[in-house]
Design a protein around this nucleic acid. Structure first.
Lengths: 349, 349
DNA sequence: TGTTAGCACCTAATAGATGAGAGTGCTAAA
DNA sequence: TTTAGCACTCTCATCTATTAGGTGCTAACA
């Protein structure tokens, strides 16, 4: 429980530190505080805040910097989303206002826009495909030994893969197999289609001698389609932050960030709590399991595309980032993205 | 013109500097030199080498480092490709020995292997498609408003693109259009198919009311197929080098390296000189037009896939890299890559 | 009792001073 | 032509003030 004045001081320290990245002294706070008190009084209050673990010193006679607990208190109680300069909104709208041909193109562009605007690393994940079903599976013979497998799903997503076959398969056989695969798969959701189910198909020998081969294609393509792709952009911005610690850490960070599953997991944790109606959520590095992210924060927002599910966007930046602005940005952006996606889906109905 | 002893000294300085990255003094050279002379003699020789511009001092009483001219002399006259440890060869063979489905997958993997082995940034460009012709063009209707355009070329490459159409196009119409497009394009080389040629097709009204639309798809896909894709890997390794100069330079470097055309141009210059029969070629940063690359070197090699054309692989690393090793590596690698590609193409004949 | 002025004290950062170490160029002798 | 010897130069690490910005505590004050 903090007094109003203590909250004011904490907020001032955080905002000041966000700007200058330097410990904040009592005099500096005094100048910025709307109420008139002496620096000695502020020193007393700061001592209390330190006792409570919300701020800390870098050395015995330094100014104060916010602790993780301090940021947490700020985020839970004090932060207010900031309205952004008009031209930022314009830029978002402009960048999203292009003809996209696939959902994933839009999602990828979302990550790009976010990282461009913030100079942080940005993540975007498409709407979850819980209810997504198979609309059709095609095999297109391309040449003597090459075929393309194509899977179309009810959300309009298209997954394809070219295969070089060890030997020629006759068109009739392919056609027959595709027909039977479709009979079995169309209408099924992606999660339902397990390797076991496909094996069952193979056992029925539906597709002649090459059934096993063709079914393994199906499996591949389905796996691709079912894996929710996470798009990352602005990895390079990790450099800005990491003051000058060793190169190896940055390297590991890069790998972490590019290696989808790890970040997905982190974000997965956030998703459980966040929702499109709830405010944007911030997870501090100290609250994350990975030590590399100690000095970073993950700002996460969910967006809602109605019947098409929910997706996630996120920013990874330094712990001392301007949260008000970032939260304001994500709140606006998730709406625009949802709008764009609804618009996209609308064209297929 | 250098005496044998001078060449020996230059070589020693370069090799030593490559290892330790520190100016090399006359005593150090003396210890490593196979011939027995005093450090004073070496100092005299070094003064001569400096006069000729092949080495330089970092300050008035420091040891010497090679100048660009020194490297150039070394590369032109002294360097000898080094045989690599056996396990490196094993690794290359192992990594390339996987079932690939497209040429580009192989080329991409090549870049990855090279950057993994060297810890530098690596580039790989597929065999040039001079003689490549169109084997077939397909349009596959995916759903009410989505189609996929597929272009197959004589080198077995497949380019595809999904399109969301503003309105439904009837299957018969598509089929008719595709047939006529194929009649016109099959057998033509990619470079022959210009927008003007396509316009000509449109004017014949071959494809009914939607001809213009469909032809613009063709144009898109052809453009993609004709652009030679350059694969880059190990961008992160740029960090290792750039000691600690400002972050912005690294940022620009990243962009430079990812922005294909620029590097393509640089490599283009090299290609004119290099050939699969000629030795691996090194271009020093000082010889490149771009100032950002000042402290880097581009090591380029061409590989030869017989009738399927020639391609390029390259490494971008610090100017003081171990050239003997890198040249040895690329010489071996280009042969393995060519073998793998020949093997791949062989499967379609 | 909360607030403030004053002061002793702390620490990081900066600038100079100093000496060791590595290297050079030059001279004179072999 | 080569070499030993030596004076000289420059960097780098270390040490020593000095300064600037901050704190905590005490005692006076409203």
């Amino acid at each position: 429980m903090l007094t109003e004045r203590q909250e004011l001081i904490l907020k001032t320290i955080i905002q000041d530190f966000t700007q200058d990245h330097e410990p904040v002294g009592s005099k500096t706070v005094m100048k910025q505080l709307p109420i008139k008190v002496s620096s000695a009084t502020i020193r007393n209050e700061m001592a209390t805040l330190e006792e409570k673990g919300l701020i800390e010193k870098t050395h015995s006679s330094s100014g104060r910097i916010p602790s993780s607990e301090g940021y947490r208190y700020y985020l839970d109680n004090l932060v207010e989303p900031l309205r952004l300069p008009e031209n930022v909104y314009d830029k978002i709208v402009y960048q999203l206002d292009r003809p996209f041909h696939q959902v994933n193109e839009i999602v990828q562009e979302a990550a790009k826009i976010l990282s461009d605007l913030t100079n942080y690393t940005a993540f975007a994940e498409g709407p979850e495909n819980h209810g997504v079903t198979v609309t059709g599976f095609r095999i297109v013979p391309l040449s003597n030994r090459q075929i393309m497998a194509i899977l179309v799903t009810s959300d309009g997503n298209v997954q394809n893969q070219v295969y070089a076959l060890p030997h020629h398969i006759h068109g009739d056989e392919i056609e027959k197999a595709v027909r039977m695969i479709n009979d079995e798969l169309v209408g099924k959701s992606l999660k339902e289609i397990t390797p076991t189910l496909l094996k069952g198909l193979a056992n029925q020998q539906i597709a002649g001698t090459h059934s096993a081969e063709l079914l393994s294609l199906v499996e591949d393509v389905i796996k691709d389609a079912a894996s929710e792709q996470m798009y990352v952009d602005g990895q390079i911005n990790l450099l800005n932050n990491s003051s000058e610690k060793n190169v190896n850490d940055i390297r590991s960070l890069y790998e972490l960030v590019d290696h989808n599953d790890l970040i997905s997991n982190l974000m997965g944790d956030c998703e459980k709590v966040a929702s499109p109606d709830l405010p944007v959520q911030v997870t501090l590095g100290s609250e994350l399991p990975n030590d590399l992210l100690k000095n970073y924060s993950l700002v996460t927002a969910r967006y809602n595309v109605g019947e098409h599910g929910e997706g996630t966007i996120a920013l990874l930046g330094p712990t001392n980032m301007p949260y008000s602005q970032m939260i304001g940005l994500l709140e606006y952006f998730r709406n625009e993205l949802a709008k764009k996606l609804l618009d996209y889906y609308g064209r297929f109905q």
